[in-house]
């Protein structure tokens, strides 16, 4: 990673604490943030590619007035980047998303949710 490359903490609109750390309403938001940090550190995309993808989602019409959908936009931007970079297809991502949902529903309490729990896999 380029030492002069800004960190993802500087992402436009990122909710932060008074100390300047990112804050998350739910665990999945922190996971999405962490994945993006790793991909950026590995040089999978540059800061400007990320900032552009995120801004594109943030400035779409129909956003919630209270910005509570900030990380929805974040995940949409990340999804868009990984498909544009041909890491996966939108179709594959959608199918896998549904598969995880079926896996969760099929997992009884007390067992970890695993992708292979999807009855259709």
């Amino acid at each position: 990673m380029n030492a002069h490359e800004p960190s993802l903490n500087g992402s436009p609109g990122l909710p932060k604490s008074n100390e300047g750390d990112p804050v998350f309403d739910e665990p999945w938001q922190a996971e999405a943030f962490a994945m993006t940090v790793r991909l950026h550190e590995k040089g999978v995309f540059s800061w400007s590619e990320w900032a552009e993808a995120l801004s594109h989602e943030l400035y779409k019409p129909g956003r919630r007035a209270d910005a509570s959908d900030y990380f929805d936009c974040w995940v949409a931007a990340l999804s868009r980047l990984v498909t544009e970079l041909s890491i996966t297809s939108q179709d594959n991502l959608d199918r896998l998303t549904q598969s995880w949902q079926r896996a969760a529903e099929a997992t009884p309490h007390g067992k970890p949710i695993l992708l292979e729990n999807d009855p259709e896999r």
């Binding site: 991909l39 995940v75 990984v82 991502l93 896998l96 995880w100 949902q101 969760a104």
Partner: peptide, 13 residues
């Protein structure tokens, strides 16, 4: 939807 989407991204990556 968002939890599942993040899991899907994690799986692929």
């Amino acid at each position: 939807d968002m939890q599942a989407r993040v899991k899907a991204l994690e799986t692929i990556l």
